[in-house]
Nucleic acid binder design. Structure first.
Lengths: 294, 294
DNA sequence: TCGAGACGATAAGCTCACCTTATCATGAGC
DNA sequence: GCTCATGATAAGGTGAGCTTATCGTCTCGA
């Protein structure tokens, strides 16, 4: 016999967990079964994939080269299965969707409702995390598509713009009647931003002509909601995307103000692997998203 | 359970043969076993891969899209296995080598001897056919490497030049003392060439500033050996690569003559898939080839 | 129109690859 | 040195997938 996809999946799991027991668990088999399959594979290859230390397991140099190719194969196989689903016409089955945190709470409620109405037999999994991780999970075939701020500029991704959203100033209610500061004077104010890693943080900084790398004295919040609460407490001002205004400013004594043109904004879009055979179906999903946002 | 590599291999075989019985034979299983595997796969996918006609079997549109991806996967898996061999250091096991017909008879004897001396436990398969078919078989993963005239200019191939060889004029012995014709006057002579498809034919035509497409009154031979015999019979003149001179002119009343500089020539080289993990080992083989040619 | 042959589907039975649970061997850490 | 964690080994069970035998159907030639 030859190499098996099952073995590749086992190897991938083992590499990821560095632990036979836990890897076996995620593969839904017993630990000895996984041990044997891995040993058989190594024997057949004539080279060790893993280095068994007393504390856990790690990939050998050969193993890591092997895994890299194995992952590509597993991803291609997953896509092959998606190809069959795509041939069925209407999107059905599992849809794994990633969304960035500064979009998810405002877009998903309306969107998921519409999507489940138009595609009844769709099993939707949502993953909310930062852009780089979404991109990585797309690459690894663990997500079908993601909603992020464009551009991502990965050559292997298709980018589908959905809509633009402006950024608004949020300041304490007491300051509601002051003139709207321009980007220059904004730099002099106490600007509250999301913590490192959020693309919205960088977009806001870029609007103020500030470099992300420049060390600044900032108070970082972990969500837009937190930021607005902090503004309400008089700690400073912040920017939030238009879509978040309704939800976030309801429960805090803050006022929002539009910047004069050109307003700061960003483009939100869907991205997916160019090789994903579900592309036509994902276009449909993008349509639903546009409606939900509009 | 999920999709199996075995199933993909069966599908590939069936698509290639269009016949369950013969496909099963090449897979070394019985016809019912193959039928069942294919049917199971189709069932799981929810779409037919093949259209069963009364006379044989053909791919459905979906099947052909499926197969395209499946082939990529199978090739990647083969390469994964080669990766293990490559990790062993010295090249060993199976080496599938393609050679064009105008090189094979002159280069292989010396080359294979050397190669088997330096790599004792190497199982060498040689395939001799025209360049386009060699390229296709490389693409399909049915060859590890090929010896052809460069350039091939396929972006997915690594080209490794080995040596250049000049083309010599072959004419009847009676004409041995005539001046060597230049490329212009060569066009006026009765030039014997290999039949369509041989790259050497195009190279010779190109030397005479003739276009391959231009309809000409030519006598086409199927091998250099035939051409030289025809020259010996006084039918015309021909060009042959320098390497073939010793072998081919031995048994015919012909004379060879060198063209004045710039002599016509071509570059012979080895090509292999860029993704082939055996690349370092193939470099070694290229070394042996250079020695054999030198 | 009918009989023969080719071909793929189906049926029944077997076997071994692969999984399970139970247990062992080894090394780390308190 | 005892204990716990972890991976390897052992023994046994079962089902996926193979085999051979046979059927149904379509084509083609007499």
């Amino acid at each position: 016999m030859s190499l098996t996809l099952k073995q590749l999946r086992y190897v991938e799991a083992l590499a990821q967990h560095g632990h036979f027991g836990r890897a076996a668990e995620t593969c839904a088999i017993s630990q000895p079964a996984l041990s044997m399959q891995v040993r058989d594979l190594e024997e057949r290859l004539g080279a060790a994939l893993f280095e068994r230390g007393a504390r856990g397991v790690s990939l050998s140099p050969f193993g890591s080269e092997f895994l890299e190719r194995a992952r590509d194969i597993l991803r291609a196989v997953d896509e092959l299965e998606d190809l069959a689903r795509a041939a069925q016409g209407q999107l059905a089955g599992r849809l794994r969707l990633g969304v960035i945190p500064t979009i998810a709470p405002y877009l998903l409620p309306g969107f998921l409702g519409r999507l489940m109405r138009s595609h009844a037999d769709l099993d939707i999994h949502v993953r909310e995390t930062l852009t780089p991780r979404l991109i990585r999970e797309l690459d690894e075939g663990r997500l079908d598509t993601a909603i992020v701020a464009l551009p991502v500029s990965e050559p292997w991704l298709t980018e589908m713009p959905l809509f633009s959203e402006n950024f608004l100033l949020v300041r304490p209610l007491a300051e509601a009647n002051l003139p709207v500061p321009d980007r220059e004077s904004l730099r002099e104010m106490r600007l509250l931003l999301l913590e490192e890693g959020h693309c919205f943080r960088d977009q806001a900084l870029s609007f103020c002509n500030l470099h992300a790398s420049a060390p600044r004295e900032l108070l970082d919040g972990s969500s837009l909601s937190t930021l607005v609460q902090m503004v309400g407490a008089g700690i400073g001002v912040t920017l939030i995307p238009e879509m978040a205004v309704a939800v976030e400013t309801r429960s805090a004594p803050v006022a929002t103000a539009r910047f004069p043109a050109p307003e700061p904004s960003r483009t939100i879009g869907m991205v997916w692997r160019k090789t994903n055979p579900l592309a036509p179906q994902l276009q449909q999903v993008a349509e639903v998203l546009r409606e939900a946002a509009g």
